[in-house]
Design a protein around this nucleic acid. Structure first.
Lengths: 337, 337
DNA sequence: CTGAAAGCGCTTACAG
DNA sequence: CTGAAAGCGCTTACAG
């Protein structure tokens, strides 16, 4: 802030009123004589006066901003999530402060906690805050909503996520029941990532429910990454492992699978069916168009903000919100368009 | 903030020192007896005390946060931009406050300007702030860097963007010189979007430099959108307009072109070559892999923050930074991989 | 309808 | 090395 920025005192002096009056016309918190109000407004305009947020916050004891803590910003996933969060925050009249934890502030430079820093509440995405910090926030009674992460033991923080397990189960069952696939590989996501783990549970559940044996050789780590998924698929092919379908933990890794299979001359879906999870924008443009599970990521962000706002207002929040997913059938599973 | 949040006074009282001393151990701004310092640290730990940012800001007259003003958050483009901005902000020890202007705060709820709200400086993306607001900031001497937008007349704000015109020119020239294309269509982006306009200039420049006539029938509006681009391409086909190449204003619209051409049974690149701009992550996975211009969007974000930090520190910033682009040759232009 | 004053929670000369 | 006090720029009872 340049030193010269005008303050409420400047406005008051020039308008020949007290700062209390200026504050009142600014906020409409009390009736002000229309004539003086007009005078005050005029000098606000002249000075281009903008109230300083920090002072307001200090006096009000509210920041009117919501914090979002993420491990990183990259990836289409976060784009959708942020979109929803932004919409929700705007709706409720909050600003959005974004904190990345994988990108730690230069040591010594930041004396700030990633947490209460100037926010009224926090949206915490999986893998961005450690249990210690979460515990501290919980004990302090600070409003927090968890995204795609179940709370650590004894910490009762509300969570919003998607139906990972259910989605995985129905898409794998589609492969089994409709397309009669029996050797279905699962490409896991990042290690310790809850989404990946729930999806794996759904996969196992589908196998079991349909009397298919579980073959550990068919489970590999695709890391939610197109290139790694491609490599891993090439490996499976090279190892001569027999499989007739692949359930990739997300669409990005499904793309890698598609690429590897095409390069190896396998036909999709005739030889090997491929399905993903997320329903990214490009899923319908792939060759063949990708059958996948639509995850309402933007809605997750939106709903999370709404829950957070409830908590901030001292209302009760849902302890668990599972956003519904949907099977999106295209061609990579073997169905006709 | 819950009412019970501990303050520096609590820490001081319990540690039996003055608040000045607490502040000193917090910030290391003055030597403190090791024993008392340890005592203070212990009670900070016990209370889970976190200094309140607003008070600090007010006393320091610095917010240590950078604001980013965007029209919206959606799209892969913003994802990369934000990624760079986040990295840059972290590097420099700043927090990131994000403001979307297309999503206006509920009327009456927000009394805040999208501008100086608690930031030390602003990154303003094209089409997010009107000239009036920009002028006000400029006159107030508030640190602002423009992204992908030339400043309004008489407003000398630094700008960072990419070599739009140059990139467009070289990719169109590649089509002309290497692949001997003569009827090259241009799919514009959004109306009044500077990127689209500069790219159009580069396109025209390439035609002219190579003695190709300009045919207005070959210029259509693809809106940076896959679906709209698809429709527009179908229209051109239906209108029986002859063209042997398409330069789409971005990769998203190039995907739409690819889709429309495939559906119509045109071979790419044999019958019609297609190229894009941006080099999104998926560009290499398209069929055929897309020849495009690599735009260093993440670097734009990073560089913009660096410039902004210079301005905040009272140093001189570059008035114009054009980040270099690169022609990425894949197969959709007609080259062999 | 309006003003004087206390208070929000920090930092930082100024003394000692 | 440490503390009392002023000040950062607002809001809001409290009086009038």
């Amino acid at each position: 802030m340049p030193a010269s920025r005008p303050t409420i005192a400047d406005v008051a002096r020039i308008s020949k009123v007290s700062i209390a009056t200026v504050s009142r016309v600014l906020n409409g918190t009390a009736p002000v004589d229309e004539e003086t109000a007009a005078r005050v407004r005029a000098t606000i305009e002249t000075l281009s006066y903008v109230p300083q947020a920090a002072a307001r916050i200090l006096a009000n004891r509210r920041t009117d901003t919501i914090g979002m803590v993420l491990p990183e910003i990259g990836g289409a996933f976060f784009q959708h999530l942020l979109q929803g969060v932004e919409t929700g925050a705007s709706e409720a009249g909050y600003d959005l402060l974004i904190h990345t934890t994988r990108n730690p502030h230069k040591l010594g430079t930041s004396r700030r906690s990633p947490a209460e820093h100037n926010t009224d509440g926090l949206l915490v995405f999986t893998n961005s805050l450690d249990t210690r910090e979460l515990t501290r926030l919980y004990k302090a009674g600070f409003p927090v909503i968890l995204l795609h992460q179940t709370p650590p033991k004894d910490i009762e923080l509300p969570i919003v996520t998607v139906e990972n397990q259910h989605g995985a189960r129905i898409i794998v069952e589609h492969l089994i029941k409709v397309h009669n696939r029996r050797r279905i590989a699962y490409l896991q996501g990042i290690e310790n990532h809850e989404d990946s783990e729930w999806r794996e549970k759904g996969y196992l559940e589908a196998l079991k429910a349909n009397g298919l044996p579980f073959d550990p050789q068919l489970v590999r780590r695709g890391m939610f990454d197109r290139n790694i998924a491609k490599l891993v698929t090439e490996e499976m092919l090279a190892d001569n492992i027999h499989f007739d379908a692949v359930f990739a933990a997300d669409d990005d890794s499904a793309v890698g699978v598609l690429l590897a299979l095409r390069q190896a001359g396998c036909r999709v879906p005739e030889d090997i069916a491929v399905v993903g999870f997320d329903d990214q924008a490009y899923a319908s443009s792939l060759i063949p168009p990708l059958t996948t599970i639509h995850a309402p990521t933007e809605q997750v962000g939106l709903e999370a903000v709404r829950q957070l706002v409830r908590v901030i207002h001292g209302e009760e929040a849902e302890s668990l919100i599972l956003m519904p997913v949907e099977l999106v059938i295209r061609n990579s599973c073997g169905c006709q368009a």
